[in-house]
Amino acid sequence: MTTPWSGSTLAKAIEAFAPGSVESSAGADVWVKPDSISTVCEGLKSRPEFKFDLLSSLTAVDYIDHFEVVYHLTSLPMNASAVLKAKVGRGRTEASVPSVVPIWRGADYQEREVWDLMGIRFEGHPNHKRIMLWEGYPGHPLRKDYVTYDQSITLSIPDDATEKLGGDE
């Protein structure tokens, strides 16, 4: 059975090799400062007490006032898992976080996907391009403030035009 690391213990253990990198911790989660993501992940991957060699999942959530990048890590030798989170783009500023592709190549497409759909920039990604949508696509659809195409049409159509549109259908 895969053992999940407790957030508080993991936070302490991270602080031991990377002081000042942890923001807070609760349950199974550890919030890491975005600037120190590279250091923390490098340590988590290579240090003998962690050995998190597999990046299970990398994603991001839009919490309106900030974005959260979520890393699900797995250690095969220890059969353990951990959750790492980083809050970026507070106040909906330009969100950016260091890329972990140099540490885990598995982050390659996942970071591109997050950039494409959520608009979080990954500094140092070797191929920082959109993945699902084409270059030049307006906006990042998974953001909560994204206005979809049909919504934008409804917004832009004057009231008297809706009847005509309905008649067409």
Binding site: G7, T9, S24, E49, E68, A80
Partner: peptide, 24 residues
């Protein structure tokens, strides 16, 4: 190998996830 026992998440897993939101 196994992780140190004090590092294991103490509470039951189903609730562990639920504690996250408050902290978050």
């Amino acid at each position: 190998e196994s992780i140190p026992t004090d590092a294991v998440l103490g509470a039951e897993p189903s609730n562990a996830a639920n504690q996250a939101p408050q902290a978050q």
